[in-house]
Design a protein around this nucleic acid. Structure first.
Lengths: 238, 238
DNA sequence: ATTTTTTAAATTGTCGACAATTTGAACTTT
DNA sequence: AAAGTTCAAATTGTCGACAATTTAAAAAAT
């Protein structure tokens, strides 16, 4: 076959990027749902696809497993982790509490540098909305909220919040898809109100706005699911 | 050399345990502070020590890096992560908030199965204290608190709490070392009070007890550090 | 027809070697 | 002596092969 005769002049890849690149490609494909939940993923074919040996693929997969984006079924291969939408209300419960706490901490401890970063991220988010760039919106929305967490001046809480956001990345993908043409202008003004509350150190207001922000997201999300089918997801926030 | 002539009759290890075993050994050595913070750790010598190739050692190290127990200094090797005791008050801040939230959730949502597990873990903890077994105390104390988190019926919060506890494992080691001969009997009764508050669904009391529990730990810890040297750790809990 | 045994294939962890860098010391050159 | 260059050693990612299992399908025995 031409593929074999045309023997790739194997110039070894520049040291140590394959596994990182493969990790990022797979991660993006999983998060964008190009790789469907429960879809099998095996290192042999990935190695073929990326024209590398199994080692870098394995490394990438180990990392994805540790992030719970892949799931190993012992001796039965590896699959894209199932997306359990029935867990969504639990997720929102957790996100609500953490988000309120983080906002309150930010309002208390923020300094000028923090505020600058938050404003910067807000601007980036606004421009992704302007450009109707969904992937950009997801990324910059995340960065905006993490900037707030940073202002809380507690790296443990920042880590908790970041990991929780990361846990919800695929759900968030569905959430943003729900704005299929009419853009979420109000998200931008919501963010601005949060910035002001943090800037003026109004702890209670910052917490309340974070709470409303989460509720609104939940609302939008459930409405969207409701348009797909009658959902049996129950809400237990009070 | 005899080492070479005596050629190990390399019976390959039973499939796929070396890397897990090596991971556990290294983890325990790091947590018990046998491997000192900042101490260099290189795969070549570990491979020699465990009589395996670099691959399983590398896998174990990757995992430890992802848990922040090891730290990679690019092109300069890998070291045991520094133990930043100056972060301790931040850690306690975060632990306090999460612990209070988890206790409150547990008091609200606990069922009989949860209560049974909590009681079981409490019994195990009590017997480790009885036996003066520090490693056992650390483990069973963790399991006790995680049992409470489970009762909160929110896997996201459970994960947050577990990871936060894991983050503090080395600090906790120092904490338990501080009870060098007189055992923490009161920890047992504290736990019992928490169990009762959760059992009788007294949310406010459960939260308050969790708060006191954390404060007491902080107190004990700082006192202990104070006996070692004049500590510049500042407390900002209010 | 059901259970047991045998086998081939798939899965998965490990091996030893090697190659692309990077680092820092030794050696020039200015 | 300072700056630049060269080079061996250390670090680190990748390769292709292989071996220990597990799984499940095929074959044999009951």
């Amino acid at each position: 076959m031409s593929k074999l005769t045309q023997k790739k002049e194997r110039v070894k890849n520049p040291k140590g990027y394959s596994s990182i690149i493969i990790y990022e490609i797979l991660r993006d494909e999983i998060l964008s749902l190009d790789l469907a939940p429960c879809q099998p993923v095996d290192d042999a074919s990935l190695a073929k696809r990326f024209n590398v040996s199994r080692s870098p693929v394995r490394d990438a997969m180990v990392r994805l497993v540790s992030e719970s984006l892949l799931q190993t079924l012992p001796n039965k291969g590896t699959i894209v982790s199932p997306l359990r939408l029935e867990d969504f209300s639990k997720y929102i419960d957790a996100l609500d509490i953490v988000q309120r706490t983080v906002s309150r901490l930010a309002a208390k401890f923020r300094n000028n540098e923090n505020l600058e970063l938050i404003n910067k991220e807000q601007a980036i988010f606004a421009s992704s909305v302007e450009a109707n760039d969904i992937l950009g919106m997801i990324q910059s929305n995340r960065d905006f909220h993490i900037a707030i967490a940073k202002a809380g001046n507690n790296r443990y809480f920042e880590k908790i919040y970041r990991e929780l956001l990361d846990d919800g990345r695929r759900s968030l993908r569905i959430y943003f898809n729900s704005f299929d043409s009419h853009l979420p202008k109000n998200l931008i003004s919501d963010h601005q109100l949060m910035i002001d509350a943090i800037k003026f150190q109004n702890l209670d207001l910052a917490e309340e706005l974070a709470h409303e922000h989460t509720l609104q997201m939940q609302q939008q999300f459930l409405n969207y699911l409701g348009t797909l089918e009658t959902s049996d997801i129950e809400i237990n926030i009070n």
